Simulated scan of single mutants.
Amino acid sequence: MFDEEGYRKLFVEESRENHENIVNNLLALETGGDDQQAAIDEIFRSAHTLKGMSASMGFDAMEHLCHSMEDVFSLIRSGRREVTVSLTDLLLTCTDAIEGMLDAIEAGGAPSDEQSASLVLELQAFAEEEEGGESRNHLPVRRPPRPGSG
């Protein structure tokens, strides 16, 4: 027989460990510890694990956020991006969102895209900024056409 509550409890427990690992290693990056590459690798691994576990449990919003974090750390691991203060702030905000999602899951609910959609967009913009060679400090704003221009 399928024990959904048992799986949920195990998911939350293991996810909190991975979440804590991400936070601790982000703080190590922020303080400029000795082994930056090890911290980056640990963050990547924990985000990858959280992504897979979220997908297997059907928590799509959490999976999307973790996937976007993993994409950014893939760029950092490959040396195509640097860890900046603004990126660290964004990633710490992502970990706050993950913590809120875990709280919702632990309480028997499911996280919604509302909790993570804007963060996913910011992470994607960060990744695309590198790929396109553009320098953007924020997401592009779509403006309506001016009257008489179309």
Rank of each mutant, 00 (worst) to 15 (best):
L27V: 15
A28M: 12
A28E: 14
A28W: 00
L29S: 02
L29T: 02
E30D: 15
E30S: 14
E30F: 04
E30L: 12
T31C: 11
G32Q: 07
G33Q: 11
D34Y: 02
D35Q: 14
D35V: 05
D35E: 14
D35A: 09
Q37L: 13
A39C: 12
A39G: 03
A39L: 02
A39N: 12
I40K: 08
I40D: 05
D41R: 04
E42T: 14
E42G: 05
I43V: 13
F44I: 10
F44M: 07
F44V: 05
R45D: 03
R45W: 03
R45S: 02
S46E: 07
S46A: 15
A47L: 07
H48Y: 06
H48I: 09
H48G: 01
H48C: 00
T49F: 02
T49G: 04
T49L: 10
L50R: 03
L50G: 02
G52L: 12
M53T: 14
M53P: 00
S54V: 04
S54Y: 07
A55H: 06
S56I: 08
M57C: 07
F59A: 00
F59W: 13
D60N: 13
D60M: 03
A61C: 09
A61G: 01
A61F: 06
M62L: 15
M62Y: 04
M62F: 10
E63S: 13
H64R: 11
L65S: 06
L65T: 11
C66P: 01
H67M: 10
S68W: 01
S68K: 04
M69N: 00
E70T: 13
E70I: 14
D71K: 09
D71I: 13
